[in-house]
């Protein structure tokens, strides 16, 4: 049995570098404000008329702002494994970008393992599999783990 092809669950939102992945955001060429997901047309800073953006790799580590879990299977378009396995979720603050990004936390890390301020890093993991491929997303992982 051959390994399934790995594909991003959402195209263009993160690098597929399995060692040191980054979220792909954008930065306004005029005022320098960061965006995730990418802003493509008009800057949302009310004092800026910027219309040009460059793609930037966002910091791949940050600190926990808050965290929770999902004890029940979410509705579609979530694709759940059967039986459903609860997962942990973290909101992580990126220091340079001063931005909080949500994501699932890697399997095996529970709510009781997390604290606000804890250092987290971005990793790639499976969101779900279909017949042809493994759909990849970003997840947060405690740096110490």
């Amino acid at each position: 049995m051959t390994a399934k092809k790995k594909e991003p669950a959402i195209e263009g939102w993160f690098t597929m570098d399995s060692d040191k992945p980054h979220l792909l955001g954008s930065k306004c060429c005029d005022c320098g404000t960061f965006y995730f997901p990418k802003q493509k047309n008009f800057c949302k800073n009310p004092s800026c008329n910027g219309e040009e953006f460059e793609e930037v790799k966002l910091s791949r580590t940050g600190k926990v702002w808050s965290f929770t879990n999902s004890c029940y299977k979410p509705p579609e378009p979530f694709v759940a494994a059967e039986p459903f396995v609860p997962y942990t979720i973290a909101a992580v603050e990126l220091e340079a970008e001063k931005m909080t990004v949500l994501g699932q936390v890697v399997e095996g890390v529970n709510v009781s393992d997390l604290k606000a301020g804890m250092e987290m890093e971005l990793v790639l993991d499976t969101l779900y599999e279909d017949d042809e491929s493994e759909k990849i997303t970003w997840k947060w992982k405690p740096v110490s783990a």
Binding site: T68, P75, E76, P77, F78, V79, G103
Partner: peptide
């Protein structure tokens, strides 16, 4: 709204993040 449901982020997720904070 589509993205967050696809990634498994529901309405209670947000309320719970505020509560935990």
């Amino acid at each position: 709204d589509w993205v967050r449901f696809h990634l498994g982020i529901t309405n209670p997720t947000y309320f719970a993040l505020y509560a935990r904070r």
